[in-house]
Nucleic acid binder design. Structure first.
Lengths: 210, 210
DNA sequence: ACCTGAACACCGTTCAAGT
DNA sequence: ACCTGAACACCGTTCAAGT
């Protein structure tokens, strides 16, 4: 599982010419900046400066700012995917597995709000089909879809179109997570856990075999 | 119901000194630009130019760009509020009323994607309590909350915390709307109406009195 | 291959000055 | 009260040049 709050990436030693693994360092530096100051505040100049590298060095590794953000989003989806698969298996699959996925999803969002906003905030405008980002996003979605199919096959969930079920569940946890992060859950918002608990309860009620 | 796609706002007559209702015109010009080119592409310079006015004239009416966007978001919430109240009443309240609200919500988002993104995309960073934006957002939320309380009182919905129910329902339709708008509903996404229909069906199933 | 520094075409915002 | 024009401190991106 890729780390989302990496240790400080190495600065270039002033004398040396090559940085080393600049691409990976650029990614980490961008993530750090976003985590601390938000997506809007991210400037390529600051990223370069944090690594002791010129502001144009980045263009050797990313076509532009959008591509850098796409890489951040892809990393986020990979981490989310790992969290969902882990939750499902560690909870022993079944209804408990889906509950665990629901909690894992909300927790991922609230503990990595900046990553989450890059993933879903529309900052990445060109998500080409087959791209790293596209593949990572699909994989995360599949972790949920697989769980729902499993529940259907065990006769626990209603047997309608699994894709439609997955869209519904994903939309629900996504919306809850977004509103919670945006502070739009009212003046005295419930905790992330309480909200996730209520959400999972209702979701299961909505999809249970009748 | 305030219009979200206003007619072209009047340009200043070159000779004249005063523009007239500049504040309203600025707002309309901003909305037009956002609808056509997205939030990222909105520049104060372009807004001024569209009205035949200097780019700093805006600062007489809005403290800064953030305040302008907050006004756009507030206008969006007022329109959404009107749509939700209208849907509820025109459908004759009850379960049909809630179904209509669900459709109205998704329709509002998909037909005004740019507005929707300003409202929920985190572009407005300072939503002060008691501000125009805050009040408009609360009012829209109340339209949903009122509907749920009504359904509870008629014995149709389970009698748990109405606020929690409202958060859940809002989160669900919000998430569905966002993912649909962002093109994250898969390679062959269902129509907005089909998605809204499925969503409303499941929501009612989740909240029905047992 | 990889990095640099100057340059270009943009931004939001401030401010003294005009009417 | 309302608007202007120049100026300031920023951006992302390009490109010829260096190692």
């Amino acid at each position: 599982m890729p780390s989302l709050s990496p240790a400080r990436p190495a600065r270039k030693r002033p004398g040396r010419y090559h940085h080393g693994d600049l691409r990976q360092s650029l990614l980490h530096a961008a993530v750090r900046t976003i985590d601390r100051q938000g997506v809007e505040a991210l400037t390529l100049r600051a990223v370069g400066a944090a690594l002791g590298v010129s502001r144009t060095a980045l263009y050797r590794h990313f076509a532009d700012k959008d591509t850098l953000l796409a890489a951040v989003a892809a990393e986020g989806f990979r981490t989310l995917h790992a969290a969902l698969v882990g939750a499902w298996n560690e909870a022993g699959r079944g209804l408990a597995g889906l509950r665990a996925q629901g909690h894992a999803y909300v927790t991922f969002g609230t503990t990595h709000p900046s990553h989450y906003r890059v993933m879903f905030g529309g900052y990445v405008t060109r998500a080409e089909k087959g791209s790293d980002l596209d593949v990572a996003g699909q994989a995360a979605f599949m972790a949920l879809l697989d769980a729902l199919v499993d529940l259907q096959q065990h006769g626990l969930f209603r047997r309608d179109d699994p894709m439609m079920q997955a869209r519904y569940v994903w939309g629900t946890v996504h919306g809850i997570t977004m509103l919670l992060m945006a502070g739009k859950m009212g003046p005295e918002p419930p905790s992330a856990d309480a909200l996730a608990e209520y959400t999972v309860d209702r979701l299961i009620g909505a999809l249970r075999r009748v």
